[in-house]
């Protein structure tokens, strides 16, 4: 798993590439807590994430809960059908705003 962080306007973008399972869940959790503690909305680019395990999903739940507690919008962008399926059967899709691309997600963020 690779995580790169960048800023587009006032939003923080996290780009996750690779498999997200228990071997990297701890690192991802630290990263999302770090991002959530800062100002600005959050867009997670999942275009390069090909798998997420249940341990990996926990990081996304933590991110969603942190964002909600701090009144931030959080969007997932570009996820593959397989990943979308995992989020769906895990009941987590409705925690996030889902977009096809990062650009669409950024454009839809609240001002």
């Amino acid at each position: 798993m690779e995580v790169t962080e960048s800023r587009i306007g006032s939003a923080t973008t996290l780009k996750i590439v690779g498999r997200v399972d228990s071997s990297v869940a701890k690192a991802l959790e630290q990263k999302v807590l770090d991002v959530a503690s800062r100002d600005g909305h959050i867009v997670v680019d999942l275009g390069g994430m090909n798998y997420v395990s249940s341990a990996g999903l926990r990081s996304f739940i933590i991110l969603a809960k942190q964002a909600r507690a701090k009144n931030k919008a959080i969007a997932l962008a570009g996820m593959s059908d397989e990943v979308a399926e995992i989020f769906d059967i895990s009941g987590l899709l409705e925690l996030f705003a889902i977009y096809d691309s990062v650009e669409a997600a950024v454009a839809a963020l609240p001002r």
Partner: peptide, 15 residues
């Protein structure tokens, strides 16, 4: 036995 779209407990209210 496939999951059926339920979220974990304590994440969303009135579910």
């Amino acid at each position: 036995l496939r999951r059926s779209g339920n979220p974990p407990l304590g994440v969303m209210e009135h579910k």
